[in-house]
Amino acid sequence: MLDLVIDARPAALSAGFNVRRILPYRLRRMLGPFIFMDHAGPVRLAPEQVHNLDVLPHPHIGLSTVSYLFGGQVTHRDSLGVEQIIRPGEVNWMTAGRGIAHSERFEDPATLAGGQLEMIQTWVALPEAAEENAPSFRNYQPQELPIFTDTGVWMRLIAGDAFGLHNDVRTHSPLFYLHVVLQPGARFGPPRGYPERGAYVAKGLVEVSGHRYGPGQLLVFTPGLDPVIVALEASTLMLLGGEPLGERFIWWNFVSSRKERIEQAKADWQAGRIALPPNDNAEFVPLPDDRTRPAGTGTPPPAPQALS
């Protein structure tokens, strides 16, 4: 009932700030429209180290970034002039479209010192018809995100449609994204009606078809089959998937259906044609060295800049 199990790999975002990177993966670039997934934290730092976490202004095209916190808080600033603190249970949904820059700042030392900061970052690729849309940003409050409970099961719909739940989070293609908490012994399965589905184990221990899976593993389910997930202990899962969009190219923070559009984005950032956030423009992440090579050389592109 599993096509693949992806083990998260360590990735360094800045000095002293490591995350678990789940997508993209060499054997699975996307899951539905989801093309990127990071799990950060729990983070515990002394106050004098907080500045090491900040992700400076950096650009995106061709995708929506989705930020969801289990604990702590993060301040988002972007080139639209938006400044938004995100807290647990909220969703920051930023659609880059033809181009946007943003930063992620960690400005609450108390949550870091207490080891409370923990978050999931995903990128959702845009359909071709929406890749050049005007950029936009929206914060969604917990009361806008429906919750369902049953015996041993709690879940929040972050985006899309699942189990008869729907919210007003604006998406551009059919998908689902759920935060699920299972008590020991609870049984659960992914929503039906989507060709690509997966479950990321953020905490706990679960069993599928007699095999056990723990934190940092993304379970990619076989299309057409409906697996049963059994919680062996209290567990937190992120369920995600949807309709595939077709091939996408990803280089650093840029996603597109066209290679030439990636090249244009590189030039635009280097030339300053993607505006910096007006309230966070004193520094930025420069374009990394272009280590791409013709197919077959085996030299990878630079790692995506995240948090998203």
Score class of each variant (00 low, 15 high):
V5M: 10
P10K: 03
V19D: 00
R20K: 13
R26L: 14
P33R: 02
P33C: 07
D38S: 08
V43L: 14
V50P: 04
L53V: 05
P59W: 06
H60N: 00
Y68D: 01
H76N: 12
L80Q: 02
L80W: 08
G89M: 09
V91Y: 00
M94R: 00
M94F: 07
A96Q: 01
D108F: 06
D108Q: 07
A113P: 09
I120Y: 01
Q121L: 12
A130P: 06
P135Y: 03
R138H: 11
W154I: 04
R156F: 06
A162H: 01
F163E: 01
L165R: 02
D168N: 12
V169F: 05
P174D: 10
L175Q: 03
V180H: 01
L182T: 01
E196P: 06
G198I: 02
V208H: 07
G210W: 14
H211V: 11
P215I: 04
P215F: 07
F221P: 00
G224M: 08
V228C: 10
V230N: 08
T236R: 12
M238H: 12
G241L: 10
R248E: 04
F249D: 02
N253W: 07
I262L: 15
I262A: 04
Q264L: 14
K266Q: 13
K266D: 09
W269Q: 03
R273Q: 15
R273P: 10
P277R: 02
N279G: 10
N279L: 15
N281R: 13
N281L: 13
L287H: 05
D289L: 15
T292S: 14
P294Q: 10
Q305G: 08
L307M: 14
